[in-house]
C-alpha cells in the first residue's frame, strides 16, 4: 500500500510542481520584474509557470508582486479564497514580506501579506531580480515534491486564512469590508 501511494505521490507531485500556473496579480514595481521573468530573456516557461491566468479559478500560484495596501487587502483575500486547491503563495518583494520601506510609519500599508493569507515562500529584496523569482519557484517546486496524499488534511489546515478558521467569511461578501479590514490589521 505504501509503495503504491508513494508512486502516485511521485507522479502527482511531479505533474503539479512542473505546471504551476500563476495568477496575474501585480500591485506595484515587483510586477515589472515578474513580467521580465516571463519574457524571453529569463523565460519562466522553462519551469512550467508561463501561463499567467486572468482568473483565480484556473490558477495554482499567487505571486504577490508588490505592496499590499489596506484597500487591496480584502481583494487579495477574496482572490486567494477563490483559487482552487491546492494553492500556493509566493510573497515577492520586501513590501509583501514585511511591509518593506513602509514598515512602521505608513498608515495605508499592510505590514506583510502573511497578516492576511498564509505564505509558502518569502522572497525578499526590493525588487527581486527575475532570477530570484525563478529561484523562489524552484524552491516552491521542491516544497510541493515533499508533499504526500496522506497529509492532505494538514495541507488544508496550513493553507487556511484566519477568517476561514474563525468561519467569519461573511464580511468578504459585503461592501464595507475595507473599513473592517483596516480596523483589524
Amino acid at each position: 500500500m505504501h509503495i503504491i501511494l508513494s508512486t502516485i505521490d511521485n507522479i502527482y507531485n511531479w505533474a503539479r510542481s512542473n505546471s504551476l500556473w500563476p495568477l496575474t496579480f501585480a500591485t506595484s514595481c515587483c510586477g515589472i520584474e515578474m513580467m521580465s521573468a516571463t519574457a524571453s530573456n529569463f523565460d519562466i516557461a522553462r519551469f512550467g509557470s508561463e501561463v499567467f491566468r486572468a482568473s483565480p479559478r484556473q490558477a495554482d500560484l499567487l505571486i504577490i508582486a508588490g505592496t499590499i495596501t489596506h484597500k487591496m487587502a480584502p481583494i487579495l483575500l477574496r482572490l486567494y479564497e477563490q483559487m482552487a486547491e491546492p494553492k500556493y503563495v509566493i510573497a515577492m518583494g520586501a513590501c509583501s514580506c514585511s511591509g518593506g520601506m513602509f514598515k512602521n510609519d505608513s498608515y495605508s500599508v499592510v505590514y506583510g501579506a502573511d497578516k492576511i493569507i498564509p505564505v509558502d515562500i518569502y522572497l525578499p529584496m526590493c525588487p527581486p531580480k527575475p532570477e530570484a523569482l525563478i529561484d523562489a519557484i524552484k524552491k516552491l517546486q521542491h516544497k510541493i515534491k515533499q508533499e504526500s496524499l496522506i497529509n492532505r488534511d494538514a495541507y488544508i489546515r496550513s493553507h487556511k486564512t484566519n477568517l476561514q478558521q474563525k468561519d467569519d467569511l461573511d464580511i468578504l461578501t459585503l461592501k464595507e469590508d475595507i473599513q473592517i479590514f483596516k480596523m483589524g490589521l
Binding site: 483565480p56 481583494i75 486547491e85 476561514q164 461578501t173
Partner: peptide, 19 residues
C-alpha cells in the same frame, strides 16, 4: 487526489476581486 474546500467567497462571481 485534490484537496477541496467550499465556502461562500469561492462561489462569488469573479470581478477582479471586487464585489
Amino acid at each position: 487526489c485534490a484537496p477541496k474546500t467550499k465556502n461562500k467567497v469561492k462561489e462569488l462571481p469573479y470581478e477582479c476581486g471586487n464585489i
